[in-house]
Design a protein around this nucleic acid. Structure first.
Lengths: 207, 207
DNA sequence: TGTACATCAGTGAACGCGCGTTCACTGATGTAC
DNA sequence: TGTACATCAGTGAACGCGCGTTCACTGATGTAC
């Protein structure tokens, strides 16, 4: 993961996906035309259909790529935090801090979340793509629920809370903050909201 | 606002807006075709262009209508709460409870937030529509910031927090919960997340 | 009370363009024997 | 080492349809005098 690692030349398929992701987050899926993608990448239209069976196949590939990248990033962050502190509560609080810092580095405005973008255009996609998007949210729930369970086992919460919805709170906050960040062109919304989640966890569990 | 009030016959323009709102929240703006709208409402295409100068004019009207309805709903809720309790903290906590209950009544899945939907397709809209969307988020910020200021004046927060971003937290949580609700077809996500916000405020300010 | 004109809420036909998709074909590289 | 075939990564031309937009026109209702 070194910054200076030889940059692999990026396959045509990968370049199509990368460009499509940008466009989808800015204009939505329907307005992201194949015509534009091939112009950006420098191939002909039939070249596109060599890589993707049809437009929905592109959407499916886009979602899968996004979910994998996303998982890798979160694994990195929270694994690193877990190494820094044994205690589940403090390890998690450190993880959230690292996560907020990571989101701060995405300078400018956050480009967006593909899973969230799909939700506001869901009639455009086939069942498989919608299922992938739902899967993404459930993966976040499972991940954070797992942390919260271990915390709650050691530190009883100050108020009665449901751990599933408390796990969902971070999804909601991140996706909501991305929307705020885009609407107000404010690069700080995401780290700020993650920090509020961290505060809430602290107040709720810290003895 | 009585349920049994004579239902006004709803002008063609209003019916177009209502249908457009539904479609935009499900498929996005680009895929909401004028053709479909007029078929649903039962006029011809030129009839549509009598009511709206072009498609962006429809978007503008949609946003304005949404923001007005939204403001009215929140005014109702929090004004009612303020009447029930003088203390700024407890008045606000009651308001949040009423708000959560209101969102629980929107049975099924929440249809969505027009201001959030615009953000993920913003290249489709002209500057005026984008500005309206940003205005919507700033109105929420101002509203909640105002409540929080009066609370913080009386009850010092347990952790150092920025009141602007804490006001934005409710926007983020609501828009994020709507996305969750749509993705997972879960009608309870919205009231659950509003309740977490209420918990956070309680833990943060309650002596 | 009647006439003239204006406004409202549309109709009907036509337009051109961009879109996703298909199909037959191709030149370069890889693999089996 | 040479030949035959397969796979990879595309090209080029054509398709038909749906879309947003324009324009000249219309019948019903409202208003001024």
């Amino acid at each position: 993961m070194s910054q200076t690692a030889a940059q692999k030349p990026a396959s045509t398929r990968e370049r199509l996906l990368e460009l499509a992701e940008q466009q989808v987050l800015q204009k939505g899926f329907a307005s992201t035309s194949i015509e534009e993608l091939i112009a950006g990448v420098g191939i002909t239209k039939s070249g596109f259909f060599y890589h993707f069976k049809d437009k929905n196949d592109l959407a499916r590939a886009l979602m899968q790529r996004y979910l994998e990248d996303n998982k890798r990033q979160l694994d990195d962050t929270f694994d690193r935090a877990a190494e820094l502190h044994d205690d589940p509560l403090h390890g998690f609080l450190i993880g959230l801090k690292l996560f907020a810092e990571l989101m701060e580095k995405v300078r400018d405005v956050h480009p967006g979340c593909i899973a969230a973008a799909v939700v506001y255009q869901d009639q455009l996609f086939d069942a498989e793509v919608r299922a992938l998007s739902a899967e993404g949210f459930l993966a976040w729930r499972a991940r954070f629920r797992n942390h919260l369970q271990r915390i709650a086992d050691r530190y009883p919460p100050k108020l009665p809370v449901d751990l599933d919805t408390l796990a969902d709170t971070i999804s909601a906050l991140v996706d909501g903050a991305i929307i705020l960040s885009k609407a107000l062109k404010d690069g700080k919304a995401l780290p700020a909201q993650i920090t509020h989640y961290r505060n809430y966890i602290k107040l709720l569990f810290e003895p």
